[in-house]
Amino acid sequence: MSPLSLIVKVSATAWLCIVGGLIAIASVQTLRLSNAERDIAQLEAAAAKGTAARSVAYAADSDRTAGKEAVHHTSIQKASDDFTQAAPARAVDFSADLARTRRLLDSANDRAASYRAQAESGAAACSHLADRSTALDRQLAEGVGVVAELRAALERRDAEVALQGAVIDADRALFSPVEQPKPAIFEPPRAPQL
């Protein structure tokens, strides 16, 4: 065998080994590419599932919040209506107290006139007694008027406190913590090791 034919055989064998190695490497890379594409598809599916779960949780939270806001609005409106509807009754009570005060003042003035008439007919002691009685009647009537004003102020304050209490209760109901859904834990699939 000639050295040239030996070189040709070695060269052909080397080329066959190189081509065989390239084919083996291409097969391994094709397998890796196929596995990577499968893993990417699984990751995309898991990410889409997580996004869908978050969307559902957000929609449920929005519904709960809208419901609480509606209850809050209704509670505030009811408290305001109750306060407004009670105002005429408070005004009637105050007007009745003022009318009573006016009657007492008129009665006191009438008695004062009769006391003065008695004083003019009697001595100086009667005059002093009439002045004293007049002052007491006037103080009584003014005291009843003050009591009426204080009663009206107290009733209005009580109604305002009840209104504020209802508003606070409605606000507490609105801002009470809402149970949050537990987020889905995203765990990507493990890639196979080659």
Rank of each mutant, 00 (worst) to 15 (best):
residue 182 K to I: 05
residue 118 Q to I: 03
residue 106 D to N: 02
residue 20 G to Q: 03
residue 88 P to I: 00
residue 117 A to W: 04
residue 124 A to T: 13
residue 91 A to K: 04
residue 102 R to V: 04
residue 115 Y to M: 13
residue 171 D to P: 02
residue 159 A to Y: 00
residue 155 E to N: 13
residue 126 C to H: 15
residue 103 R to S: 12
residue 193 Q to H: 13
residue 41 A to Y: 01
residue 104 L to T: 01
residue 157 R to N: 07
residue 81 D to V: 08
residue 23 I to W: 14
residue 121 S to L: 09
residue 140 L to G: 15
residue 74 T to K: 12
residue 99 A to Q: 09
residue 42 Q to V: 05
residue 77 Q to E: 11
residue 1 M to H: 14
residue 140 L to Y: 08
residue 161 V to P: 02
residue 185 I to M: 07
residue 191 A to M: 03
residue 119 A to E: 01
residue 91 A to E: 03
residue 62 S to N: 06
residue 62 S to M: 08
residue 17 C to K: 11
residue 30 T to C: 06
residue 170 A to Q: 00
residue 190 R to P: 06
residue 140 L to N: 13
residue 43 L to E: 11
residue 147 V to R: 15
residue 112 A to V: 06
residue 128 H to T: 15
residue 63 D to K: 14
residue 164 Q to A: 05
residue 75 S to Y: 13
residue 31 L to M: 12
residue 61 D to A: 15
residue 40 I to T: 15
residue 130 A to Q: 00
residue 130 A to N: 00
residue 91 A to F: 00
residue 176 S to M: 05
residue 80 S to C: 06
residue 192 P to Q: 14
residue 163 L to G: 01
residue 64 R to F: 12
residue 17 C to Q: 13
residue 81 D to W: 08
residue 101 T to Q: 00
residue 47 A to D: 03
residue 66 A to E: 12
residue 13 T to I: 09
residue 47 A to M: 03
residue 167 V to D: 05
residue 144 V to D: 11
residue 146 V to N: 15
residue 53 A to N: 01
residue 190 R to V: 11
residue 174 L to W: 01
residue 143 G to C: 05
residue 107 S to L: 08
residue 74 T to C: 04
residue 51 T to Q: 13
residue 84 T to K: 01
residue 15 W to K: 05
residue 163 L to Q: 03
residue 115 Y to V: 04
residue 157 R to P: 07
residue 64 R to K: 09
residue 76 I to T: 07
residue 157 R to S: 12
residue 114 S to T: 09
residue 182 K to A: 11
residue 37 E to Y: 04
residue 52 A to W: 01
residue 106 D to W: 10
residue 108 A to W: 02
residue 53 A to R: 05
residue 108 A to E: 01
residue 27 S to E: 11
residue 120 E to V: 10
residue 126 C to K: 14
residue 56 V to I: 10
residue 102 R to H: 02
residue 84 T to M: 15
residue 78 K to P: 08
residue 81 D to C: 03
residue 6 L to Q: 11
residue 80 S to P: 04
residue 61 D to C: 12
residue 99 A to D: 10
residue 110 D to H: 14
residue 47 A to R: 03
residue 177 P to W: 02
residue 93 D to M: 10
residue 21 G to W: 07
residue 116 R to Y: 07
residue 180 Q to F: 11
residue 37 E to N: 10
residue 113 A to S: 10
residue 171 D to K: 07
residue 141 A to M: 00
residue 186 F to I: 02
residue 91 A to M: 07
residue 2 S to P: 00
residue 160 E to M: 01
residue 193 Q to S: 13
residue 3 P to W: 14
residue 54 R to T: 07
residue 72 H to K: 08
residue 40 I to L: 08
residue 26 A to E: 01
residue 70 A to T: 06
residue 166 A to R: 02
residue 14 A to I: 11
residue 183 P to E: 02
residue 128 H to S: 15
residue 155 E to Q: 13
residue 157 R to V: 04
residue 74 T to W: 13
residue 136 L to S: 11
residue 123 A to V: 03
residue 133 S to N: 15
residue 134 T to N: 02
residue 22 L to P: 04
residue 11 S to W: 10
residue 142 E to M: 07
residue 179 E to S: 05
